[in-house]
Design a protein around this nucleic acid. Sequence first.
DNA 1: AAATTCTATTGATTTAAGTCAACAGAAAAT
DNA 2: ATTTTCTGTTGACTTAAATCAATAGAATTT
Lengths: 193, 193
Amino acid sequence: MFEQLFKSIQEKVTLNEDDKEVYKSFFIPKKLRKKQTLLQEGDVCIYNAFVENGILRSFFTDEKGNEHVVQFAIEGWWITDLSSFLTKSNSIYTIEALEDCELLLLTMEAREALMDKIPMFERYQRLLLQNAYIANQARINSTLTETAEEKYIKLGLAYPGIIKRVPQHMIASYLGLKPETVSRVRKQINTRI
Amino acid sequence: MFEQLFKSIQEKVTLNEDDKEVYKSFFIPKKLRKKQTLLQEGDVCIYNAFVENGILRSFFTDEKGNEHVVQFAIEGWWITDLSSFLTKSNSIYTIEALEDCELLLLTMEAREALMDKIPMFERYQRLLLQNAYIANQARINSTLTETAEEKYIKLGLAYPGIIKRVPQHMIASYLGLKPETVSRVRKQINTRI
DNA sequence: AAATTCTATTGATTTAAGTCAACAGAAAAT
DNA sequence: ATTTTCTGTTGACTTAAATCAATAGAATTT
């Protein structure tokens, strides 16, 4: 159950056997069936979730009633509404399992206690946040400069696993495109090969 | 010279008089004239800059030769290319003064030493990063859901100081719009009043 | 003071992506 | 097994914003 988590931590900071037991005592294992939610729009996001297995998305609904996918998270990734989690404000996002999932959950209290006990965990968290910030910056640049086709191709290159496992209309939503547009982009790409 | 910095720190964490002297010894004061750059595309970004006075922008140039404004920074804000700064990679961004500026610069070594000496500075930095991450998330959502007019109006509401001090075509660039579009949006808004 | 560059506006036209609608195979639910 | 829902495709048409081009006042530079 903790393989992916320890792998992720070891990629960024040192991790010894004693630490592992501490980690095990702070995370809450949780299974989620496909279509079940970890967070509902309007609720406070009380968990920072690590994905051991499966895939989830976070999304919000705009005033016109359209859903917008904000993030996908597969094995080895974290997912939460950071704003709601940190400030205990009501979330505008829903986090939903797209497949059956195995998660490891961390409450704010557990997170802080863990940072106290294992300083390297604080560094790990900071590195994650830095990477997430840089990735978001790249995503903004992408939406501002690329055509529909470029966006789709780059996503496929960066995260082939996600494009294969997620319905196409959710990929479209993540890219800020309509399903019809993604369908046409794919057709276009295929006829060029 | 340090008023804005101390004000910013005090808004987030505790700050005593001894700390102030430590801070003063680590930051490098730097004046920049309008149009001078703190970072040139292709160079490694070796400074994390705090703006005491003035206004700057960071931007990049895409393959088609179009400039895209990534960030503005006014008094009390930080600006850097975080990716280049952290990984010592060559930056794709240029950081340029839009007015004469007074900056306080922090090298990576000074930043780490400061975090060592003043643990509260690490917390302050983490809080800044969290806020920046949340703001970027909101910006992504905005570009995916809002019309040109909504983007312009919201920017004006959120940062009236920036819209007043920066040429309109840079506002357009920041919003992912063309100058002509912003001009038309403004006309539209005015005729409705 | 004159020349040059920068900035913003407006009009005419184009275009990338959106919208609306119909269809059909795949997957899930009963 | 057979409805029902989900998912992806395609065609016809619309639209928001981009593009191209001309203009002119403001700000800088010389």
